[in-house]
């Protein structure tokens, strides 16, 4: 598991968080910006919901096309207007879109 402090070290990070399989926020760090605990909790639910849908899609796709490599889903990222929320393994980080380094975020999330 990555530490939330190491996620906050990523360039443009404005929040880092961890959540349960059901999407409930368990721990968080906040940087500058209007985000707060309540919004992060909602965000966790959004990411869990989309990971579940993506898992359904990966299962269906692999079965129907025979093309493997999508399942299991290792992460879901939502690219918002200004910020991106990158999540994996029950943790996530919110990055400013400008200059967001998604690869680096996944490296830390999977460390």
């Amino acid at each position: 598991m990555a530490s939330l402090d190491s996620l906050m070290q990523l360039g443009g990070a404005i929040a880092a968080f961890s959540f349960t399989d059901a999407g409930e926020l368990t721990e968080h760090r906040l940087g500058e910006g209007p985000l707060n605990e309540d919004v992060l909790d909602l965000l966790c639910h959004v990411c869990v919901a989309n990971t579940a849908i993506a898992t359904m899609q990966a299962r269906g796709w692999e079965k129907l096309t025979g093309m493997q490599g999508f399942y299991p889903i290792e992460g879901f990222t939502m690219v918002g207007f200004d910020w991106s929320a990158v999540t994996s393994n029950g943790q996530g980080v919110v990055l400013k879109n400008e200059g967001a380094d998604y690869e680096a975020a996944y490296q830390v999330l999977n460390s």
Partner: peptide, 20 residues
């Protein structure tokens, strides 16, 4: 729930699978 939350309108998303 959060004015000027910086997330709307959404630009996109990506999902990372094991190999793709």
């Amino acid at each position: 729930f959060a004015d000027e939350c910086g997330c709307t309108p959404a630009r996109g998303w990506f999902v990372k699978g094991k190999g793709y």
